[in-house]
């Protein structure tokens, strides 16, 4: 048990990434404010990042995970910029950050 607490293994990082991913996912679904939703989406992306880097760090001389994590970060930033632009264009019409106000279907 002490071994598990004081020796940080691969699994610690994986479990951390899992928890961050799940909390980000719950946040995406259950949050009312659009900007908070986007923030929680970024959490999910960083959790995946942690996963990649943990695997690559614990593999022997295999640095693919580090490289791919860089790409992931870049893509994430781009996508966030586009999302915020779209959000602002929608906001101009509705003047509300509540995601339930953007619902046009009756359900």
């Amino acid at each position: 048990m002490a071994n598990l607490i004081f020796n940080i293994t691969l699994y610690h990082y994986l479990i951390l990434a899992l928890i961050l991913f799940v909390i980000g996912f719950i946040g995406v679904i259950l949050v009312k404010n659009i900007i908070k939703v986007l923030i929680c989406a970024e959490f999910m992306l960083t959790a995946v990042n942690i996963n990649f880097i943990a695997f690559s760090a614990f593999a022997e001389n295999n640095l693919i995970g580090f490289v791919f994590a860089i790409f992931t970060v870049a893509i994430g930033a781009i996508e966030l910029a586009i999302a915020l632009a779209i959000f602002y264009l929608m906001y101009r019409n509705k003047k509300s950050v509540d995601i339930n106000d953007y619902k046009e279907l009756m359900g």
Binding site: E42, I53, I70, V73, A74, A77, A81, F87, Y88
Partner: peptide, 25 residues
Amino acid sequence: LSAEYNAIIQIAVYGVAIPVLFVLA
């Protein structure tokens, strides 16, 4: 995790640039 390059990029992009975007919005 000895991924310095990744750490720098993470802090620079996610820690600074993206919050700037968010603050703008």
